[in-house]
Amino acid sequence: MRLVESRATLTITYVVLGIGLFTALFPIVLLVLNSLKSAQEIVQNPLALPQVIRFDNFARAWKDARFSTTFWNSAMLTALTIILVCSTGSAAAFVLARKKIKAWKVVTFYLLATTTAPIQLFLFPLYFGFAKLGLINNVFAVSLVYTAIYSPFAIMLLRTYFLAVPKEIEEAAIIDGASSWQVFTRVMLPIVSPGILTVALIIGLYSWNEFLIATTFLQRQDKLTAVVSFFLLSGQYSSDWGEIMAAALIIVLPIVVLFVFLQRRFIEGMAGGSVKG
């Protein structure tokens, strides 16, 4: 739907939307601009264009934030979380979309309740429990925590994809003698694969960016995630902000590129999992 309006309204509209555009972009432009400048230039004027385009900040940031290790950790953590959420979540969504018995309502209710539970409600016993079991600094253990936190969202989103599959397709497969596992893996999963891709993207984004759990559970230097090592780098005293912004850009750039290409999937997924109005 589109409303057609007078010239004056249209002008005001573009001015207001333009202010929004400027607001959203201003800090991002500062990030990019200053990643190309020396610390001295930044102190002089953070708004000025770089006198010479220089990329040495990036090399130093890569080394000081130990990105060769921490990027790998983040990638592992993100990949593990995506695999766990998509596999367990699609199985759960499959049955939750098909059965309409009272017990399923209870499960759905429970999962919805855990999406809104504050992390602090379970963080402290979980931390001391993990410490006792030697699971601190264990990437797999953290991916389990992410899976618990993110899978209700994933299940709610995947469920809508399963619901959209016509019942006849499933019934036909059953008549042909397929077991429910075969229906799930051979028939349903291929049909809902766009939904799984959407979920993978969003869960990947969340895991890549996550801070609270990562900083609590992964503390040893060789186990840090990229975001946490950025946080520690930027918290040091003799801060070189050119280097810090370069480190920030290294983490943000892959995400932004992915987002720009797949923006519809991102936006529809993030909106679809939390809103059904």
Partner: peptide, 25 residues
């Protein structure tokens, strides 16, 4: 286009957003 730009801040890690505001603004 407007939507994509408005959404950019949402996808940037909170730790990075916090540092950009702290140091650059």
């Amino acid at each position: 286009l407007f939507q994509v730009v408005y959404f950019l801040p949402v996808i940037i890690a909170t730790a990075i957003t916090a540092r950009v505001w702290q140091g650059m603004i």
